[in-house]
Nucleic acid binder design. Structure first.
Lengths: 204, 204
DNA sequence: GCGCATAATTGCACAATGGGCAACGATTTG
DNA sequence: CAAATCGTTGCCCATTGTGCAATTATGCGC
């Protein structure tokens, strides 16, 4: 179905390798502990090629840190949903499927990195914006014409807004797959999600 | 009340002058039609000083393009709101007050710029994120303890999400203060806002 | 008003970056 | 198989970011 040409797969592979190298180096030495030259040496590509794929090392690091996997499984699951499911239902299910402990771990790492290096934030936000656009197109396709224009924008925006403060650490929740925190009064991600969708479903 | 020291006002003045120069140059020659050197020459500062205030010219341009004015008037208006106003009411009123034709014109300009130069987008998003945080703190202070944690995050996130597609052009609405478009089937900003807040108030 | 602490501006130097251009090689197309 | 397409690379150079130290302007206690 989604068949990419050999050429495109290779291109993606180099981008992936470069991003991964950048991410590993960021973990090992910190964001300013390495330069693009180090990245391309590790991945065995040229500096020029790096510039063809990424604007800067920050972009590469974020790209690697936020790579989703299991997208196709999730889409298969979503396809199984009942015919009368609402956009809200689909979004809820999608969040439950995609926001795994592993993804949260990645995001946590990225967050703590971006707290020490504010240079990262714009690129994190930019990547999230791209994901948001993709989700929107998917929803628009699923529910084409069934809701007035702007409905999905608002809905996804709300969900995006609900997730963002967790990502950037301004709202502390107990993430799935984490050890139980020393402060047991923080709400769990699932509770937070349920409550949030409650507001969206029934109004504020 | 908000009295800044002379030193701080001067600092802000240089930042403003630099940002303004950058913005003007971007309008005149396009984003890649000038370099930082040009900016500091026009504003009569040194290249080093520019670097003290901004990470790059993109940041400066966005800063200038999105400067809000009339914030204090808006706050005065909000203070007059009835005691039993909900966060939703306050946000609605604030949007009506702040999102003037002038601000929209600025944002439009910035959007068309960022479509030709994707480098801008991360910095636009970053600035918006900062505004979002500020709005959130303001709301949290106003309604301290009256709503569960995450309530304002979700609410402001939704509003943010509703505005964003207008900013970035993926949702076309008739902005206040614009000529009537040649395509009369686009919804007006006020209608869009009312409908959106309807969803938020009554549920999706 | 007089100094001292604080902090902004500046110049300098240098490593790092971004990107145009042309060449080369792998992949795709017909 | 030949031609076209496109990713990778090297070369080059203007531009950028930043640490450091000197200079200048402001804030504050006296």
């Amino acid at each position: 179905m989604n068949k990419l040409s050999l050429r495109d797969r290779k291109k993606e592979a180099t981008a992936h390798a470069l991003a991964e190298s950048a991410y590993q180096l960021a973990l090992e030495r910190g964001l300013d502990g390495f330069v693009v030259e180090d990245v391309v040496q590790r991945a065995e590509y040229s500096r020029r090629t790096f510039a063809n794929h990424f604007a800067c090392k920050e972009e590469a690091v974020v790209m690697a840190a936020m790579s989703f996997d299991g997208v196709e499984e999730a889409e298969a699951e979503l396809a199984k949903m009942p015919e009368n499911a609402t956009p809200l239902d689909v979004l809820y299910r999608w969040l439950k499927l995609q926001f795994t402990a592993d993804l949260f771990r990645k995001m946590r790492t990225l967050v703590s990195m971006s707290q020490q290096h504010p240079t990262l934030e714009p690129y994190i936000l930019s990547l999230f914006r791209r994901l948001q656009r993709e989700a929107q197109e998917a929803l628009n396709e699923l529910f084409a014409g069934r809701h007035p224009e702007g409905y999905t924008h608002l809905l996804i925006g709300a969900v995006y807004g609900a997730i963002l403060p967790i990502i950037d650490g301004s709202l502390q929740v107990q993430l799935p797959g984490d050890q139980v925190d020393e402060t047991p009064d923080v709400v769990s991600f699932d509770q937070y999600l349920d409550r949030s969708f409650g507001y969206l479903r029934d109004g504020f």
